[in-house]
Amino acid sequence: MPLLFEEIDSQASPLGEISLRKRRIPVFGDRDIYEVKLGDEFLMSSMFVDAEEALSHLGLAAVQGDNLSVVVGGLGLGYTAVEALKDQRINELLVVDALATVIGWHKDELVPLGKILNADIRNRYVLGSFFDLATDPSAGFDPQHAGKKFDAILLDIDHSPTEFLNAANASFYTTENLSLMADQLKSNGVFAMWSQNLPEEHFEALLKTVFATVTSHVVSFYNPFQNSESTNSVYVCVKGE
């Protein structure tokens, strides 16, 4: 009989102790549920991935052209990256994460989607702070090609534009720093971002100081713990010419 709970790995990180766990909840059927925790805080669960997948689907739907170069900020359990790779227009995908531990879980295939990401030659892991790379366009996201421009940047790191995984991330959400990131997009390139909250008007207004168009999407999904619908949101922004 499978274990109902297993801690697969736990390591110190610059943000605190980060752990990967696997559990089974019999009432939810014969399935393994993977969870990532940072200290006492739950970062992600494989039970709730609809909005992470929608981030890729909605963001890439707004991108024009083929042979796309795309950045995913935040690896997590890999759902955003794997969903992005379903778009056959993608030529290369850079997945940026600040935690070597999380990248290691995928490279060592301790999480189910690691095998898919490792097998896709379009995928490349980049160890580094998304926010540092985003605000340094002369270097940029690709350590092999300084100053490279991308067709899309998909971001899923902070809980929302006002609730941060790390307090230092708050400085990213300004016209100046969003503009530095936008400099790394091609003409008509797309920036899309996940949030656990409903769309926030003040953040939409901020995005409009940088991008030609801003569209907010509400993503609804069933939450079995509450026996009701839950919502997240995805902001999709298109750069001008």
Rank of each mutant, 00 (worst) to 15 (best):
P2V: 14
E7R: 15
D9Y: 00
Q11D: 03
P14C: 03
P14D: 01
I18T: 03
S19E: 09
L20Y: 05
I25M: 04
V27M: 12
F28V: 07
F28D: 12
G29E: 10
R31G: 05
E35P: 02
E35R: 05
G39F: 07
G39K: 00
A51I: 04
L55M: 06
S56A: 15
S56Y: 00
H57R: 15
H57M: 12
H57L: 13
G65R: 06
G65D: 12
D66H: 12
L68A: 01
L75A: 14
L77H: 11
Y79H: 13
A81Y: 02
A84T: 07
K86L: 15
I90W: 04
E92T: 09
E92I: 03
L93I: 07
V95Y: 04
L99T: 10
T101Q: 12
W105C: 02
K107H: 04
E109G: 04
L110K: 15
L113Y: 06
G114N: 11
L117V: 13
A119C: 10
D120K: 08
N123P: 02
N123C: 14
N123M: 15
V126P: 00
S129R: 05
S129T: 04
F131E: 02
D132A: 12
L133A: 12
L133H: 00
A134W: 02
A134M: 07
D136E: 02
A139G: 06
F141K: 00
P143F: 10
K148T: 03
A152E: 03
I153A: 03
L154M: 13
I157Y: 00
D158V: 01
H159L: 14
F164Q: 03
L165T: 01
N169C: 09
S171Q: 11
N177W: 00
L178N: 01
S179L: 08
L180H: 04
Q184H: 09
L185V: 03
K186E: 03
K186A: 05
S187H: 09
N188H: 13
V190I: 10
A192S: 14
N197V: 12
L198W: 02
P199D: 09
F203M: 07
L207F: 10
V210T: 09
F211V: 02
A212L: 12
T215G: 00
T215A: 06
H217G: 02
H217P: 01
N227Y: 10
S228V: 04
S230M: 13
N232W: 00
Y235C: 08
Y235D: 03
V236Y: 06
V236Q: 01
V238G: 10
K239M: 11
